[in-house]
Structure formats: structure tokens, C-alpha cells
Amino acid sequence: MRHYIQIIAEIIEGLGVAILLLGVVYSLVDFFISKYKGKEDCYFRLRKTLGKFILLGLEVLIAADIIATVNTNPTLESVTILGIIVLIRTFLSLSIQVEIEGRFPWQKTSQNVFHKDSKE
């Protein structure tokens, strides 16, 4: 059973990496098309689109890490490493979300901390 759980964790990890790669390609293609069409907000669109893909990829990678850790014999070292990885990825996710939306997740939509003219 552990062997199959490890395979599933690796597949989910690969999916997370694939989401990140797809996000880079999609965001860059969208950026260059927008740039070619002369749109002014193409850089901010690139950052927002890429940020969303990174967020999704990080969430999938966190799930893969949790599954992989559950599969092993939990030791203090493995649980500590998982905790540190989850903390780092959660901090990255929070930072990216603030960058994309211009507010913290717990703030109301009308409280836009960083972007005065945000449209979303």
C-alpha cells in the first residue's frame, strides 16, 4: 500500500510542477499577444495570471508533500521538515495572493491596501 501512496504523491507532485510550467507558458503567450495588440496593462496581467498559476501549483505541491509524509513512518525530523515546507509554501502563497489581489485574504474586498485603482 505504501508503494502506491508514494506513486500517487509523485504523480500529484508532477501535476504541481506541470501547473507551474503551464502557467509560465500561458502567461508569457498572453503577455506577448497583449503587447502585440498594444494593451497597456499587459505587465500587470502577466503578473496576475502567473501569480494565480503559482498559487495553484503551490497548493498542489503542499498536498503532495502531506501525502508523501503520511506514507512514511512519522518521525520528529520528517514532521518538522513537512511543517517547515508547508510554512514556507503557505507564506509564499499568502505573499502572492496579496500581490495579486492587493489585500489580505481576511480583508473585505473594499479594503484595498496596496492597489488604489484595482479592478477586482
Rank of each mutant, 00 (worst) to 15 (best):
V60P: 00
I96F: 09
E59C: 12
I54E: 08
C42L: 00
V70M: 09
Y43L: 14
R89L: 06
V86P: 01
G51D: 06
T49K: 11
L55D: 02
L46Y: 05
T69P: 02
Y43D: 14
I81G: 00
G51K: 05
E59G: 14
V86S: 02
E77C: 03
G83T: 06
Q97V: 07
R89K: 13
L55G: 04
I85L: 06
S93Y: 13
T72E: 10
T72C: 05
S78F: 04
T75W: 01
I54G: 04
L92Y: 12
E40P: 08
I81Y: 06
F91I: 10
I54R: 06
Y43E: 15
I54K: 08
V70R: 04
E40Y: 14
F44W: 13
G57M: 10
C42Q: 09
S95P: 00
T80P: 00
D41H: 09
I67A: 09
L46N: 03
I62E: 14
F91Q: 05
L61T: 00
R45Q: 03
K52T: 09
F44E: 15
I66C: 08
E40V: 13
I81P: 00
T75F: 03
D65M: 15
T49F: 05
E40N: 15
L46V: 03
Y43V: 15
K48V: 09
V70N: 05
R47A: 07
R89G: 02
T90V: 14
D41L: 05
F53E: 07
F44R: 15
L94I: 13
E59M: 14
T75R: 02
F91H: 03
V60M: 02
Q97L: 11
L56Y: 12
A64N: 01
E77T: 11
V70T: 07
T80V: 11
I96E: 09
T75M: 05
K52W: 11
Y43M: 12
R45W: 01
L56M: 15
V86T: 07
L61G: 00
T90C: 13
L94A: 10
R89W: 01
L58I: 15
L82T: 03
S78D: 08
Y43S: 12
N71W: 01
A63V: 04
A64F: 00
E77D: 13
I54L: 14
L87S: 10
L61H: 00
S93C: 13
L46I: 03
V70I: 12
K52G: 13
N71L: 00
F53G: 04
E40M: 12
I67M: 11
R89H: 09
I96S: 10
S78M: 06
I62P: 01
P74Q: 10
S95A: 15
T49Q: 12
T69V: 07
P74A: 06
R89C: 04
L50D: 00
